[in-house]
Simulated assay, not measured.
Amino acid sequence: MKRWVGLAALFAACIGMNGAFAQSTLRIGMVAGFSGPVAGIVQESAEGAKLYFDSINAQGGIKGQNIELVTQDDKYDPATAVAAAKSLASQGVLALMLSRGTGPTEAVLPVLKENKLPLIAPATGAASLRDPVQPWVYHLRASYQKEAERAVKHLAGIGVKRITIVQVNDPFGNDAGKGAIKGLDDIKLRAMSNLRFDRNKPDLAPTMQAIAKAGIEAVVLIGPAYAVVEGVQALRAAGSTAHVATLSNNASADFVKALGNESRGIIVTQLFPYERSTANLMVREALSLAKSAGRNELTPAHVEGFAAAKLIVEALKRAPGKEITRDSLVKALDGARIDLGGLQVHYSEKEHSGLEYTDVSIVGEDGKFKR
């Protein structure tokens, strides 16, 4: 009798109020700086991912299972990122996604290897994560070097010749700086100077005063948002009207807000199609879902998060076997050719670069990124 009561209780626990079997969940983890210097752009990318996951869940999920995005704040700190990644791995997430920054992402590599846990679409373009290929990391965005190369070629394309590179003195700045120099080499130009600043204490006023005095026509300013904001304000205070180009790590509403009146005309590289472009299938889908959810517009980070979620959903659909596991998810990605809606992504066991898409935007009078 007790056995039957136990079975009945178990059966009842598996059934919802409407008599349908309760769905289990496919858990995807996101370890990123939800507080700290990158909080704004991290939140936007998470919102973009959730927008797509919610739409899939509304259609019945994947193989009858809903997708749950489980987030943990690493405060943009590598040690905290490791602890958070270990925690999510122990909770059984199938993959991590959208880590932000080179340092935190590099720090979690041993956790990925130990737990055979894939990291999909990390928000970093670091060469150190691409060459050699990291077997558990599947990139979606282009590299920092490709971004910086695109920025300088854009500047040259509008007739600028006297270009200075100002970069944060850390692995991110050094990596992207190489791309800027390569871009200039490709078009037979040389940087007027290549200057570095400290991440923790940028102190960019003297640098920008010297740049203004030298009559530099454009500055490629590579660094975290707070430093780039300081640099732009110092440059304008010194009386320079030089063009300023920065990378997509600063493609957020918070960055524009922090710049205030100095935001107009700032050039920001972009790694995904224009967030207002209804000509792009993926963006059109994202805009439609956003409006249905009560949101009238998207940011570049929303689009990146949305694209990452589409990639994960397609991999989940293709995962072999009745039960989706980390191993089956990796098998679905290796060798996959995936159309995200106008964006073609291809992976193999020896190539995890993802997309090479780059573009530039300019901040308009309304504070929006224009293309």
Rank of each mutant, 00 (worst) to 15 (best):
M1A: 14
W4N: 12
V5M: 13
V5G: 04
A8W: 13
A9L: 14
A12F: 12
G16R: 10
Q23E: 15
L26H: 11
G29F: 10
G29Y: 05
V38R: 10
I41E: 13
Q43D: 13
Q43C: 04
E47D: 15
A49D: 03
A49V: 04
K50P: 05
L51I: 00
S55A: 15
S55N: 10
N57C: 02
N57T: 02
G60W: 15
G61F: 15
D77V: 10
T80E: 14
V82T: 14
A85V: 08
A85H: 12
S90V: 08
L96D: 02
L96N: 00
M97F: 11
L98H: 06
G101F: 09
E106C: 05
L109E: 12
L109D: 10
K113S: 14
I120N: 01
I120Q: 04
I120A: 02
G125F: 11
S128Y: 10
P135T: 07
V137T: 09
Y138M: 01
H139Y: 09
L140I: 13
Y144V: 01
Y144G: 03
E147L: 00
A148S: 13
A148V: 05
A151M: 10
V152G: 01
H154G: 04
A156P: 01
A156G: 08
A156H: 14
G159S: 03
I163L: 00
I165K: 02
V166G: 02
Q167N: 11
N169M: 06
G183D: 03
L189E: 06
L189N: 08
R190C: 06
M192K: 13
S193D: 15
R196A: 09
R196M: 09
N200S: 14
A205I: 00
T207R: 10
Q209N: 13
Q209F: 08
K213G: 10
I216E: 05
I216N: 05
A218H: 09
V220R: 01
I222G: 02
V232Q: 00
A258R: 13
G265H: 11
L271Y: 09
F272M: 08
P273W: 04
E275K: 02
T278S: 13
T278M: 07
E285P: 00
E285I: 03
L289G: 02
G294I: 06
R295P: 01
R295A: 11
R295T: 08
N296H: 08
T299I: 03
G305R: 04
G305H: 04
A308L: 00
L311H: 05
A319C: 03
K322L: 12
T325N: 12
V330G: 05
V330A: 07
V330R: 08
L333R: 01
L343P: 04
Q344V: 14
S348C: 05
K350C: 05
H352W: 09
L355P: 01
E356S: 15
V360D: 07
S361M: 01
I362Q: 15
G364N: 15
E365S: 12
K370S: 14
R371E: 11
